[in-house]
């Protein structure tokens, strides 16, 4: 199969960008989307042209590094997968595929298809942890935790921090990301002492970073490679209300 790529090229964060067309060589439908980009890039490099910059690392949907907007949708047409888990067999021979970076104000474009998502790290920094010093922990079985709570916490903890939720949201809201961390820790007994302080600080930082408000349209959930549930947002809102009430 062959496709034509319509790719966003932008030299750096200050330069204006534009779309460029790249016809691909013959492809194997069993290639991943990123392997297809590798092939295109290797050809560009052989000609001494600058390859298309895109972020990637694990290529198995767990590190959260990759993230492209493909045909207008963060992570492309699949459901519950990251860009690196998308395979060319999803497309038809002769398709034209539009490839853009994640679009969101708090994620400035660095080059071509790469964006700066350090805002997420700064949010975690303000409260996305349990304050425990190395060496001060009690025995792992000292605190039984119901399997149901532990499983639900794991559902939330599965977030890979890719930012697709923000890119899908018309307000560039980071509520799904933040609520996943708040819920993961808030569902566990270890996370209780800091529960309300945590949510208050993380939400404040989220606002400071310029992420927008949540209007519960669910577009974030629809693109999340880990199927993180909107219910966590409801849970976080409750915790946040308590935090405000307590003056945290």
């Amino acid at each position: 199969m062959k496709v034509t790529l319509k790719v966003w090229r932008q030299i750096d964060s200050t330069a204006p960008g534009s779309f460029q067309l790249y016809p691909t060589p013959d492809l194997n439908p069993d290639m991943s989307f990123l392997e297809m980009l590798d092939v295109v890039n290797d050809e560009l490099a052989n000609r001494g042209e600058e390859p298309i910059a895109f972020a990637h690392d694990c290529r198995e949907g767990i590190c959260g590094t990759c993230g492209l907007t493909i045909n207008g949708k963060p992570h492309g047409p699949g459901r519950g997968i990251a860009t690196c888990q998308l395979y060319m067999r999803t497309f038809a021979d002769g398709d034209t595929i539009t490839v853009e970076p994640f679009r969101a104000k708090p994620f400035p474009v660095l080059k071509d298809l790469m964006v700066d998502r350090s805002a997420f790290d700064r949010i975690i920094q303000t409260g996305g942890f349990i304050s425990v010093r190395t060496g001060s922990a009690p025995d792992g079985n000292a605190l039984p935790i119901s399997k149901i709570d532990a499983d639900l916490a794991m559902d939330a903890a599965a977030c890979i921090g890719c930012g697709a939720c923000v890119a899908a949201c018309k307000n560039a809201s980071a509520m799904l990301f933040v609520s996943a961390k708040v819920s993961h820790l808030g569902l566990l007994p270890q996370g209780q002492p800091e529960r309300h302080r945590r949510v208050a600080r993380m939400v404040d930082q989220m606002d400071r970073e310029g992420f927008g408000a949540c209007t519960v349209t669910g577009s974030c959930e629809a693109v999340c490679p880990k199927n993180i549930s909107l219910n966590f947002i409801t849970r976080m809102n409750r915790d946040y209300a308590v935090a405000l009430f307590k003056g945290e």
Binding site: G135, A137, G140, P144, G191
Partner: peptide, 22 residues
């Protein structure tokens, strides 16, 4: 053994049995 204690305290959601133990 200390590693497991440390990670549990940090909130690592290890798999659990119905009785609540690891």
């Amino acid at each position: 053994t200390s590693i497991i204690d440390q990670c549990v305290a940090q909130g690592v959601p290890f798999a659990r049995e119905y009785g609540g133990l690891l």
